[in-house]
């Protein structure tokens, strides 16, 4: 049971809320309160657009505990438009070829149960190929 941790991370997980450095304007995700670019305090909340592209990816067939029921699934490094690199699952990708450089957007999905079926449902960000491009490939 990790209730306090899930609760503490809810804003960044549900809505990709990070921070912006008031000194050098670097966008930070995950939020860490100290800017890794200029070393000064950075506590201003910043809503990321959720847009980015696949930087690299791999598909998991032997899933770790808690993720068995959704295997196989693809995990990717996503380069966000604003700069940071985040690790997340890709979703809604069946039947489509994911490639390095595929444009993606953030969606909030169910990640897993905390423990068994009696535990907390954990929600958070995943990324999918941008909807409009799913509809009409360009």
């Amino acid at each position: 049971m990790e209730i306090p941790r899930h609760w503490r991370l809810r804003k960044q997980r549900y809505g990709l809320v990070g921070e912006v450095c008031p000194h050098c304007d670097a966008k930070l995700f995950p939020p860490r309160d100290v800017c890794p670019e200029c070393g000064q305090e950075a506590k201003t909340l910043y809503n990321f657009s959720g847009r980015g592209e696949v930087y690299s990816y791999t598909t998991v067939y032997e899933a770790p505990a808690g993720f068995e029921e959704v295997a196989p699934y693809t995990v990717a490094l996503i380069k966000l438009q604003e700069g940071p690199l985040v690790t997340a699952q890709l979703t809604d990708t069946n039947g489509e070829q994911v490639e390095i450089g595929t444009p993606v957007e953030m969606v909030t999905r169910r990640l897993r149960s905390d423990g068994d079926e009696r535990g907390l449902l954990v929600y958070g960000y995943k990324f999918r190929p941008i909807l409009q491009q799913l509809i009409s490939p360009t």
Binding site: Q89, T91, T108, R109
Partner: peptide
Amino acid sequence: AGLDEDVATMSIE
């Protein structure tokens, strides 16, 4: 609904 979807996630979108 997909494996990672439910009424909460669908309502959010």
